[in-house]
Amino acid sequence: MRQFAKSAFIAAAAALTALPAAAQDLTTLRVSIIPIIDIAPLQIAMTKGFFEEEGIEIDTTPTAGGAVGLPALASGAVDVTFSNSVSIALGAAQGLGFKVIAAGSFTGKEAPDIAAIVAKPDAGIKTGADLDGKKLAVNTRNNVIWLYANAWVDATGGDSSSVTYLEVPFPQMLDAIDGGQVDAAFLVDPFLNAGVSGGAVEVAGYPYNTIQSEIPIGMYAVTEDFLADNPDVVDSFVTAYNKGVDWANDNAGSDEWNEIVSGYTRLPAERLAGLDIPPFHKVVDPEALQPTMDLMLKYGLLREEMEASSILADSVLAK
């Protein structure tokens, strides 16, 4: 059905769907990405030619958020998707067979972190208890941000069920706080940095660090079927990607690093300069991911327990 509908459209719009000329011997992998700092190693590996060394060509499909990449993965429109742990787990729980093949981004080891709950300096919001009955902005409900916002409120003496979660896009969160539509917001970099350095908001807490150090957040997933059919391609992908991780960690803050990242994020260089980016990792420890699964169960995103290791492929586990 899908194939039919798709081929019918392609037939009609052949001129439109610019298929890349399959001239080279490289294997083309279609990767769904979100143009944020978290995918720096991937972009670096692409720019530095690490993928070509492994015989792979990467065709990225950027989307504005994570809501689109995983359905595209499930439907076979892309081969690899960068997404967050919660969404991947949700899809896996629905029987879509997602497997994580490479690590992406992690939260920081300790405060200050890349993500924080912020409020107006004079609002007096310092703990979850201060948020009881208040309005908290998250970018999307039922995602990783929302999950850890809940966890933080409960862990710091508040009652997450009394908090009203409002969906506000990240770029509008500072406006929403300033205008009084929300009392606090879960902000991430670079918006966090811009808000705090401008003095508009103060940090109330770092939810990720409060719960756990170095939480795996972003990661690269494929489907079980793809993994089973293309083990070599996946290995090559991971090898090249991990080279990118090394380069990213070794050269963080260098001009070339900034140039690459600002190139795909469109972030002005001066914004990048102020950021403190945690190191990238090559493995996801199931035990580091398990608390996220448990939180999903606790806050109703999962109906039954889920083993973190069940969504991790060998290539992302510690050797």
Binding site: G66, L70, S87, L90, Q94, L96, N142, E167, V168, P169
Partner: peptide, 21 residues
Amino acid sequence: MLAGTGGIGFLIVDMQRTFQV
């Protein structure tokens, strides 16, 4: 869908991103 907190449009996106097709 783009800035929602309920309503049918929000539910459709929300169901989609939590794979409750």
